[in-house]
Design a binder for these strands. Structure first.
Lengths: 237, 237
DNA sequence: TCTTCGTGACGAACAGTGTTCTCCCATGGA
DNA sequence: TCCATGGGAGAACACTGTTCGTCACGAAGA
């Protein structure tokens, strides 16, 4: 991992080679996006700045703006790169509910496997990048295969996506190794609040702080998919 | 060297009065929070900086740190102030579903009536401020009155809160007077993408971009509350 | 009444941020 | 061989949240 620094003091006639060689590849949109994802994986979203990405590529922040229009666009591209990993399957009317759940579980997992990248997903605009639209397309096909009408499927795909990104974000902020310690602190705090004003919260402290992981995600997923299934006239429950 | 600029040229014996009079009220936590909310109402979340709050109160940013620990804490306090406006009612087992919906509708409205304040709500930690906890307490009571067991009620209050803040945020970012123009641009974009790769999206463009408002919120609300109601053993559907 | 003392106020500064301007120079086409 | 084009990059701009050190003022003590 030679950086650009050791160029100082080199003989003049080496300079051309030295300038051509260390730039292993010319800067490109793809390389920038990959570098950004590497930084998120290694240091988290808070560490992701344009200067940091430039540094990762042995250059400065200004050079990036020839290939990406803004940081916001860069984040969209990073998200799209991650979305590309999500496995898609053709819609099957016989098992559409399980297909939808699987797709959302995979989406959640893809986001969570890159630290707190989900933060970018919640703040992002309505997704218009290719792979994000592939996912939406697939999910729409599944919902339609399940018999949902156009408007319900449209609302549904939005609702399910919102749920998945929001819970992934929530999980990633309190994620990591200190989950135990986090729920512990919350539980301690609940022990200090006045029980006469908050009888429910104090008495349910354990239930409220239990399991911030998969189980809670599955809980909401079941409710949402079952709720959508009940919208189809022929048979729900 | 004289430090403060605007004091220049004033007679010396006026100085004490001049410094005492313009400070109409002493800085306080409450005044700071109110000023911050005024700024959000007038200029939106992006304009809310510590310097801007200081300016609103005729002082600098540094002075605020004697009363609030950080900007994050300030945002929590602003949210709590807004949550204080939300009307609460005692839980009634006969009509708990409508009560829950009403409460969430009011919460959504409270957030949306302050520009894009919902942005603070999505990023915020699990709410621990008094009025936020009043809402959680009330909602838990309603869910329990509906017959939900402890764990389901705990998951439920979290799920419903997440849904409300997330959709309020989504609505506020594309909100304002340019909603028409926004959906129009999305619809135009959908017309340019390849129909053979995205048959669902292109054919459902109208349904996908229709009504970013109350109707979509009600759609998800119905599904969630009905889904929770079905969790109680005695009678759901 | 005079003096000390603690505390809120606050200007300046620090270490960042995203983005733009402007110049430099290597490369490809003529 | 010459020149134009366009990417690379340093510096600068206008910000951000936060901390430091100083300063003035009201209250308590002598």
């Amino acid at each position: 991992m030679t950086s650009a620094a050791p160029r100082s003091g080199w003989p003049e006639h080496w300079r051309d080679k030295a300038k051509a060689a260390p730039r292993r590849q010319p800067l490109s949109r793809e390389r920038i996006v990959e570098a950004a994802l590497r930084i998120v994986d290694a240091e988290g979203m808070d560490a992701l700045s344009m200067r940091r990405v430039g540094q990762e590529l042995g250059t400065g922040a200004a050079s990036l703006y020839a290939h990406v229009g803004s940081k916001e666009e860069l984040l969209e591209l990073v998200l799209d790169l991650v979305y590309a990993d999500i496995e898609l399957e053709p819609a099957d009317p016989e098992r559409w509910q399980e297909q939808v759940k699987r797709l959302l579980r995979n989406s959640r997992e893809a986001l969570l496997s890159h630290r707190d990248l989900a933060k970018a997903a919640v703040v992002a605009n309505v997704p218009v990048t290719p792979h994000a639209m592939d996912i939406a397309e697939t999910m729409l096909a599944m919902l339609r295969a399940g018999g949902l009408d156009e408007q319900t499927a449209a609302y549904g795909v939005d609702l399910l996506g919102l749920y998945t990104t929001a819970t992934a974000f929530e999980a990633s902020t309190r994620g990591g190794a200190d989950t135990q310690e986090f729920t512990g602190r919350i539980r301690d705090y609940f022990a200090t609040i006045p029980a006469e004003r908050y009888p429910m919260i104090t008495s349910m402290a354990v239930a409220l702080t239990r399991n911030v992981g998969e189980e809670r995600f599955e809980f909401g997923l079941d409710i949402l998919v079952a709720g959508l299934a009940r919208q189809v006239p022929d048979g729900g429950a």
